[in-house]
C-alpha cells in the first residue's frame, strides 16, 4: 500500500541528508553555504510535512532569508582571494569520519524505539489551522481575536522567555553593531 506521507518523508529526508553531507565535504566555503541553504530549505520542508506551517515559514524567513545572507556576507567581507578553498588533510578526514559514524550510531541506538509515542496528534489542514494563533497565545498567555482555539491543557505561559529573547535580540543588535563598526586607525589623519 502506497502512502503519501512516508513517501514524502523519504524524499525530503534523503535530499536533506545528502545536502547536509555535501555541506561537510565541500571545500569551497560559499559552496558549503549553498549546500547549507538547501539543507535548511529541506528542514523547513520537513516542518511543513510535520504540520508545523508557522515554524517552517519562520525557518524560511529567518534562516534562509536572514542568517544565510549574513553568513555569505561574512564570507565576502573576509575573503582574500576570489574563491576560498579550505584544506583538510586526509588523516583529519579519516578521524572525523570515524568519529562521526560512531556518534551517529550512538545517537541512533540511544533514540531508536526509546520514546513511546502514544498517538500522533491530529494534524490540521493548513487551510484552517490555528497554529499561529495557538503559538501566539502560548507565548503571551493571552487569548484575543476572532481566531482563537484554546489549548487543550491548562494555559501555558512562555511570556518570560519571550521577553528575555526580545531583550536578547536587542542586545545582540547593539553588540554586533558595536563589534563590527568601522574603526579609525590610530594615528591616521582624522
Amino acid at each position: 500500500m502506497f502512502e503519501l506521507q512516508p513517501f514524502m518523508f523519504w524524499l525530503i529526508a534523503t535530499l536533506t541528508g545528502l545536502c547536509a553531507i555535501a555541506t561537510v565535504i565541500s571545500q569551497n566555503i560559499v559552496r558549503s553555504a549553498t549546500w547549507l541553504l538547501f539543507t535548511l530549505a529541506g528542514t523547513s520542508g520537513i516542518f511543513f510535512l510535520l504540520g508545523a506551517d508557522f515554524v517552517g515559514a519562520i525557518q524560511l524567513l529567518i534562516y534562509v532569508g536572514g542568517t544565510m545572507v549574513l553568513v555569505v556576507f561574512g564570507v565576502m567581507l573576509t575573503a582574500q582571494g576570489p574563491f576560498i578553498n579550505m584544506k583538510t588533510s586526509g588523516a583529519e578526514w579519516a578521524i572525523s569520519i570515524v568519529a562521526g559514524i560512531l556518534l551517529f550510531s550512538v545517537l541512533c541506538f540511544g533514540t531508536w524505539g526509546h520514546f513511546s509515542a502514544p498517538q500522533a496528534t491530529a494534524m490540521d489542514d493548513p487551510k484552517d489551522s490555528h497554529q499561529a494563533a495557538t503559538l501566539a497565545q502560548a507565548m503571551t498567555g493571552a487569548g484575543y481575536g476572532p481566531i482563537y482555539k484554546p489549548v487543550q491543557r491548562e494555559r501555558i505561559h512562555y511570556l518570560l522567555p519571550f521577553e528575555i529573547v526580545s531583550v536578547h535580540l536587542l542586545v545582540v543588535l547593539i553588540g554586533a553593531a558595536y563589534l563590527a563598526r568601522a574603526k579609525r586607525r590610530k594615528g591616521a589623519a582624522t
Binding site: 541528508g17 553531507i21 561537510v24 547549507l36 553568513v71 561574512g74 579550505m86 568519529a99 545517537l107
Partner: peptide
C-alpha cells in the same frame, strides 16, 4: 541525528571560522 553529526564533523574539520559557524 544525521544533521547533528554532520554539524559536529563540519565544526571539527573546517579551519575557516565561517565554516565552523555553518
Amino acid at each position: 541525528a544525521l544533521l547533528f553529526v554532520c554539524g559536529v564533523v563540519c565544526m571539527a574539520t573546517k579551519r575557516n571560522a565561517i565554516g565552523v559557524l555553518i
